[in-house]
Amino acid sequence: MQVIDLRGVSCPTNFVKAKLALEELDNGTVARILLDDGEPVKNVPRSLKADGHRLIGLKQVDEGHYVLELEKIDA
């Protein structure tokens, strides 16, 4: 599983980094993106959805951050 760790990265850098990392992946690949609670988790998932990717799941884990599971869809 491809993991993109964006903990500690603030808006909008986290979104831009996620975009760049997703560019490297093949169409249909499932990736896990780690996001901080607060603004990052409120903004990044919906922006990636607006870019055309498919959101599979989004869960908060015990350490406090969120794990976004998403399928990369080529624009």
Partner: peptide, 10 residues
């Protein structure tokens, strides 16, 4: 809905 809970939190 994928049950992430963000709406309730926001």
């Amino acid at each position: 809905c994928i049950g992430c809970g963000l709406c309730a939190k926001s």
